[in-house]
C-alpha cells in the first residue's frame, strides 16, 4: 500500500484539543507542512500564545515557548536575538495579538524582526468563552457585547494587516482565508512563502488567517464558514499587502 498523505514530522503525535469544526488544526497543519518542506525541523522554534491555541507547544515537534498573553512577539524577539541560527515563529489569536499584545506586534514588525507571525482572526475570544475581541464585527453579539458591538461606544474592529502595512520594515504581509478548500490551498502558498522568507532571513513576515469559532458563535461548522464568508471577508479582505521579495 502506498502512503500518499501522512502527518508531517513537524507535528507531534499529541492529538489536537480543538473543538469540532475549529480551523486551528488546519492552520497548524499548513505551518507544520511548510516547515517540513523547507527542511527546517531541526532549526525551527515557535512561540505559543494564550488563547485556544495555548497548547500549540505540545503540537509542534520542535522546541517551543509558551508566552504570556500578547507577549509572543517580544518572546520571539528574545529567542531570535539569542539564537540567530534558529528560525522563529509566533502563533497568535486576535485577542492576544490585536488587544493586549498590540504594542508587542507593532514594534516587532517595526523593528523588522526576522520572525514569522501567524495570526488567527475569528472575531472572538474563544478559550475564555466567547467575549468581544478587537476584531469583533459591528453589531456582532458576544458574551461581553450582549446587545451587539456598539461602534459608538467601543469603536470598530482593527484590521491588523492594514495597520502593519503602514510600517516601513515588514517584509511580507498577507491575509488569507481558511473558509474553503480552495482558499486553504491559497493559504498554504502564503504560509510557505513566509517560512521560506524566514529561512532566508529576509525580515518580518506576517500571515493573517480569517477563521471561525463555531462553538462561541453558536453555529455549526458549515454555517460558521458561510457566516464568515458573508460577514468577515467584506471587512477583512484577503489579499497581499506587502511582498518585498516580489517588489510589492
Amino acid at each position: 500500500m502506498e502512503i500518499i498523505a501522512t502527518r508531517p514530522e513537524t507535528l507531534t503525535k499529541t492529538p489536537f484539543t480543538y473543538c469540532p469544526g475549529c480551523l486551528h488544526g488546519v492552520a497548524h497543519r499548513l505551518i507544520a507542512e511548510a516547515i517540513q518542506e523547507e527542511g527546517l525541523i531541526n532549526s525551527m522554534c515557535g512561540v505559543a500564545p494564550v488563547g485556544c491555541s495555548v497548547f500549540a507547544y505540545k503540537f509542534f515537534n520542535f522546541d517551543m515557548a509558551e508566552a504570556a498573553h500578547g507577549r509572543a512577539p517580544a518572546v520571539a524577539t528574545g529567542m531570535k536575538r539569542a539564537r540567530p541560527e534558529m528560525h522563529v515563529f509566533t502563533y497568535q489569536g486576535d485577542g492576544d495579538l490585536a488587544a493586549i499584545g498590540t504594542a508587542e506586534i507593532v514594534h516587532a514588525a517595526n523593528r523588522g524582526e526576522k520572525i514569522s507571525v501567524f495570526f488567527v482572526n475569528n472575531a472572538i475570544y474563544g478559550m475564555t468563552g466567547g467575549q468581544m475581541a478587537p476584531t469583533t464585527l459591528p453589531d456582532m453579539k458576544t458574551t461581553t457585547s450582549p446587545y451587539g458591538r456598539n461602534t459608538d461606544d467601543i469603536g470598530f474592529p482593527i484590521r491588523v494587516c492594514e495597520l502593519l502595512d503602514t510600517l516601513v520594515a515588514p517584509y511580507y504581509i498577507e491575509r488569507v482565508s481558511l473558509l474553503s478548500p480552495a482558499e486553504i490551498i491559497k493559504a498554504k502558498k502564503a504560509v510557505s512563502k513566509a517560512i521560506k522568507y524566514n529561512k532566508e532571513g529576509r525580515g518580518f513576515t506576517f500571515i493573517e488567517f480569517v477563521s471561525t469559532c463555531p462553538t462561541n458563535w453558536g453555529v455549526d461548522p458549515v454555517k460558521s464558514r458561510d457566516w464568515a464568508k458573508e460577514n468577515m471577508l467584506p471587512f477583512f479582505k484577503p489579499g497581499l499587502f506587502r511582498d518585498k521579495g516580489e517588489g510589492v
Binding site: A65, V75, T77, G78, R81, A103
Partner: peptide
Amino acid sequence: VSAINMVYGA
C-alpha cells in the same frame, strides 16, 4: 513589559 518578555525568550 516587552523587555522582560524578550528576557524570557533569550
